[in-house]
C-alpha cells in the first residue's frame, strides 16, 4: 500500500510540472486559437538562461529566476510582434506552423551557441531522501511542487483580478465584444505571449534540477499540452487537473503494467477520454464566439 501512495505522489509531482507547462499552451490558445508549439523551446531557453545567470554570472537564485522569466517573456512579446501578428489574418494552421518554425529556430540557435552540451541545474533544496508514511520524498521535489503550485495559483489570481488578466480573459471569451468594451486586442495578445512565455521559462527553471538541460529538453512541454487537452483545453482548472491526472496515470501504468507501455497506456486512455467527452474531462462547452 505504501508503494501505491509512493506512485501516486511521484505521479502528482510530475503532474504539477506538466501543469506549469500546460498552462502556457492554454493561455495562448484561449486568446488566439493558436497552439504554440514553441512553448517547449521557451521552457528550455528559460532553464538555460537561468543557469547562465546563476552559475556564470553568479547572480542570486531569485534574481536569476526573475531575470530569465523576464527575458523569455520579452522574447515572447517580440516574437508575437514580428512573427505572429503579421500572420493574424492567416489561417490558424499557418500560425501553428510558424510556432513550430520559431521553436526549431530557437533550438538550433541554442545548439550553435552552446553546442549540444548537457548540463545540470544545481538543486536549490537538498536531495537527501526522507520517508513520510512510507513515501520517499526529497526537499527538492517537495519544494519544486510547492513552487509550481504557488506559480499556478498566482497566475490564476493574475487573470482573475488584474486589469491585464481580465483583458486576456475577455479576449479569450469574445474578441469583438472585448474590443467594443475598450480592450486593445493587439496589446492583449502581446501580453498573452509575454506571460505564457515567461510561464514556460518559470516551468523550465523549476523542472531543470529534476531532469537535465539540453537543447531538446522542451519535449517535456508536449506532456503539458497533452495533460491540458485531457482535462479540457479551454478551462484553466480543468487543464491543471488534467496535467496532474496525466502524471499519475503515467506512473500507475509504468508501475503496474510496464515502463515501456507507459505512453501506450496513457495516450490510449487519452484517446478514450476524448472520444467519450471531446471537451476534455473537466472541460465545458466552448463559449460561443462571434
Amino acid at each position: 500500500m505504501d508503494l501505491f501512495w509512493q506512485i501516486l505522489v511521484s505521479g502528482g509531482m510530475l503532474g504539477s510540472l506538466y501543469a506549469l507547462v500546460g498552462l502556457g499552451f492554454v493561455l495562448i490558445y484561449r486568446s488566439t486559437r493558436v497552439v504554440n508549439f514553441s512553448q517547449g523551446e521557451m521552457l528550455m531557453l528559460g532553464a538555460i538562461l537561468a543557469l547562465y545567470f546563476y552559475q556564470d554570472l553568479k547572480l542570486p537564485y531569485g534574481l536569476a529566476f526573475v531575470g530569465s522569466c523576464v527575458t523569455v517573456g520579452l522574447l515572447g512579446a517580440f516574437l508575437e510582434r514580428v512573427a505572429f501578428r503579421p500572420l493574424q489574418r492567416a489561417p490558424v494552421i499557418t500560425l501553428i506552423l510558424a510556432t513550430v518554425a520559431v521553436g526549431q529556430m530557437i533550438r538550433s540557435a541554442v545548439r550553435i551557441v552552446r553546442g549540444s552540451e548537457v548540463s545540470h541545474f544545481p538543486p536549490l533544496f537538498p536531495t537527501t531522501p526522507f520517508t513520510v508514511g512510507g513515501v520517499t520524498l526529497t526537499a527538492l521535489t517537495v519544494g519544486t511542487v510547492i513552487l509550481s503550485i504557488f506559480l499556478v495559483g498566482a497566475l490564476v489570481l493574475f487573470i482573475r483580478y488584474t486589469r491585464i488578466g481580465r483583458g486576456m480573459e475577455a479576449a479569450a471569451q469574445n474578441r469583438d465584444a472585448a474590443t467594443l468594451s475598450g480592450v486593445s486586442i493587439n496589446q492583449t495578445f502581446l501580453l498573452t505571449w509575454a506571460v505564457s512565455s515567461a510561464l514556460a521559462a518559470a516551468a523550465g527553471i523549476l523542472i531543470a534540477p529534476l531532469i537535465v538541460i539540453t537543447p531538446d529538453m522542451g519535449i517535456i512541454g508536449l506532456k503539458g499540452f497533452i495533460g491540458a487537452i485531457l482535462g479540457g483545453f479551454l478551462t484553466i482548472p480543468g487543464a491543471i487537473a488534467g496535467c496532474f491526472l496525466l502524471g499519475i496515470i503515467e506512473n500507475l501504468a509504468g508501475y503496474y503494467i510496464s515502463g515501456a507501455m507507459k505512453d501506450v497506456v496513457s495516450f490510449g486512455l487519452l484517446l478514450l477520454i476524448l472520444i467519450a467527452c471531446p471537451q476534455g474531462l473537466f472541460g465545458r462547452q466552448e463559449a460561443r464566439r462571434a
Binding site: I7, S10, A253
Partner: peptide, 10 residues
C-alpha cells in the same frame, strides 16, 4: 525522450 523514471525505479 522519457524524463521521468520513477515507475521503473520503483
Amino acid at each position: 525522450n522519457d524524463q521521468d523514471f520513477s515507475a521503473q525505479l520503483l
